[in-house]
Design a protein around this nucleic acid. Structure first.
Lengths: 224, 224
DNA sequence: GTCTGTGAAAGTGTTCACAGCG
DNA sequence: CGCTGTGAACACTTTCACAGAC
């Protein structure tokens, strides 16, 4: 409990608001676009402007994790990219298991955006015997019974659940029992997971509902 | 400024926090599950418990829009479902245009969860001449040049963008010019849209990053 | 002069706790 | 009694504004 804290490092595990983490990965994405445009240095105001946030918001968010900027200069893009990847944990490759190789599962297997961000879909499972053994995008589809073996072998960090709503909880239970540490759930149900397993839900109908609310509100305001 | 306000109605268009709208569609989903389980009446605490929120949170959220509960009883599920659908605007059918029929676009065309929530994917567009004319899930793929005609004909309310990042802004511009009122963007870029057009972004890699942050934080906390 | 990092102020969102209704 | 709806207390986030670094 004595000891000097290492400089340039904050809690990171401590309670960082989810909204901050959300924006962090937006910053990362935008920094990568900047680099692709040949821009090497940016500022909190440039970054904020491109994303619709204030400059102060950008600086405060980053301040949760350390001091990465250069007063009078701004942020070196490649430097900040490295820092954010380290914070998000994507300075290494996470292996991901996909469960459910329907339309959506197939799209996830073929999605090109995972690899460059540090995620590798390393295994796919489906309950349909007709699909087991097939290869999709170079990944062999295995029987759902094999989840335990493959994941517990330590080869899998995260799970993506793309099965019908009625099966999602059971699949999640199996994944958790096998030792997965986090789950992205594409089924339209709220999963009950034990503490220590993180989840993010992606519900396509809900995304549309968010838009329809905004549009409907605007229509109501105009019409009234 | 005199006048009696009509009972059971609040602003709705007024500034409702996005977080509230997000939870609203979670409530809707959960209420639909409750009905499927044969449960007809629920309470703020039951609803909250199943979703991980406090009972007070549920009541406060709903209070933004009116008084839908029955003291001493709770909420009648079907009643509350109707109210929330009205608030979200999904008490009618929204027609949606999909742009980009790659892996993800195909999955969106085949997604079974839209119809029941009030969304109909009524048109699909792709820039690849080889795809134009094909039918996917009963929807004919049209050339991107036709967006203007089809949307402006008034048949389309919302757009879903599932094209590569580099084309997303251009596609969004065309959709907006054609009169679309809201966009769900699956490309990993921030779209610049004019005021009056709503957007929601879904970035699959970012969803995984949120999970990897949480897991990495936990590992750091344990390891340290 | 430019831009960061940060306390202090302002603004929002959440929880508490209870009056009032069924 | 149980449960809603709600003002008041609290906690959290964002914005402001400026000292310090380049």
């Amino acid at each position: 409990m004595s000891s000097s804290k290492p400089p340039n490092s904050r809690s990171e595990a401590g309670s960082v608001p989810a909204a901050v983490v959300n924006r962090l990965s937006l910053y990362l994405r935008e920094l990568q676009h900047l680099v692709a445009e040949g821009i090497q240095t940016t500022s909190s105001s440039q970054l904020g402007e491109r994303l619709g946030f204030s400059d102060a918001q950008v600086r405060k968010d980053l301040a949760h994790f350390g001091a990465f900027g250069h007063p009078g200069v701004g942020y070196r893009c490649d430097e900040l990219i490295s820092e954010i990847r380290r914070i998000l944990g994507t300075d290494r490759v996470w292996t991901v298991a996909l469960v459910g190789v329907g339309n959506l599962g197939r799209a996830l297997l073929g999605y090109k955006g995972f690899e460059s961000q540090g995620f590798r879909v390393a295994a796919a499972f489906d309950s349909d015997p007709a699909k087991v053994g097939d290869r999709v995008e170079g990944v062999e589809i295995r029987s759902i019974e094999e989840i335990g073996q493959i994941v517990a072998r330590g080869a899998i960090d995260l799970g993506m659940v793309a099965v019908p709503a009625g099966f999602a909880q059971a699949v999640a239970d199996v994944l958790v029992a096998a030792g997965v540490r986090g789950i992205v759930n594409f089924a339209p149900v709220s999963l009950a997971l034990p503490e220590g397993v993180s989840q993010v839900g992606v519900d396509l109908a809900r995304e549309l509902e968010q838009v329809s609310f905004a549009v409907a509100s605007r229509l109501r305001a105009e019409g009234a």
